[in-house]
Design a protein around this nucleic acid. Structure first.
Length: 271
DNA sequence: CGCCAGGACGCCC
DNA sequence: GGGCGTCATGGC
């Protein structure tokens, strides 16, 4: 990754990033595509830091109105720009299926998102489709002036209070997650550092957090790249291409591999 | 209209 | 421990 400082922001050169693939692949739900003269432009945020970002061409990006300080302290980290994805994909490509998946959507990066936001977002995601997940999270943020509520704020809302979300049976799960996080019954910062099985067990004490949601929180909200969320699509991949199990050499980065595979299998099914 | 959605729970055996 | 109905809501 290389970058230059311009008067309208930071221009970044990184061939292993594609904004559409990364921001609209089901790992984050709050990035909005907005019309622009660029290849694509998105608006979103990491915690309370908003960002408008454009893809100018393949491998070239503009972080609008961003100074070098913010870029280094926040956005390099969020977009995981210090990780060499070319190297990663080269290693993955030892496997035939992974090679195809990386080739199909090689611009996906694993975002380093906020664990709290991920916990709530993936509780909402269960038995739900991506457009509706986005809608529910939109309504949640709209209620807090366009930002994601912090733990104190959400802990003050009962499941009944949350009816404006129209999140159905998930409202009571959201309330339980907020309550347990608020009281310290679960400490997300500590969970992030725990051995993986201990972390899984801690997350699953929250009502509505089962194996899939726990893996998503670990992977997307805590950058635990060994976490491997298994949904209906990945189940299909495992059954079809990995009847003898997922290859050992990729296991410590299985979550990132999973992202490529998820995108790939869905594209095949769509035809 | 019916089927399904980046599942988990509660209950059954 | 595995199997199965149920849970709200709405996208398609």
């Amino acid at each position: 990754m290389d970058y230059s400082i311009e008067n309208n922001g930071i221009v970044v050169y990184e061939t292993d990033l594609d904004l559409d693939e990364t921001l609209d692949c089901g790992q984050a739900f709050r990035w909005k595509k907005i019309p622009s003269d660029y290849l694509c432009t998105y608006e979103g945020a990491f915690i309370n830091d908003k960002l408008r970002i454009s893809q100018l061409e393949k491998g070239k990006f503009l972080f609008h109105d961003t100074d070098e300080n913010d870029f280094i302290s926040k956005w390099i980290k969020y977009f995981d720009l210090e990780t060499d994805y070319s190297e990663l994909k080269r290693a993955f490509s030892e496997d035939e299926t992974l090679a195809k998946a990386c080739d199909y959507a090689g611009g996906i990066r694993l975002l380093r998102q906020d664990s709290w936001e991920c916990l709530i977002s993936f509780i909402i995601s269960q038995n739900n489709n991506i457009p509706r997940i986005k809608g529910i999270i939109d309504r949640l943020c709209d209620n807090y002036s366009g930002r994601f509520p912090d733990v104190n704020e959400l802990a003050a809302e009962t499941a009944e209070d949350l009816s404006y979300l129209r999140s159905g049976f998930r409202a009571k799960y959201i309330a339980d997650a907020a309550k347990k996080t608020y009281t310290g019954e679960i400490d997300l910062k500590k969970v992030a550092e725990m051995p993986i099985d201990e972390a899984r067990a801690a997350l699953r004490k929250i009502k509505g957090v089962g194996p899939k949601v726990a893996e998503c929180v670990l992977l997307f909200g805590m950058y635990r790249t060994e976490a491997f969320p298994i949904d209906v699509w990945i189940k299909r991949v495992l059954a079809e291409y990995y009847p003898n199990g997922f290859p050992d050499f990729a296991k410590d980065k299985a979550g990132i591999a999973q992202q490529y595979l998820f995108h790939y299998i869905r594209s095949i099914s769509k035809g």
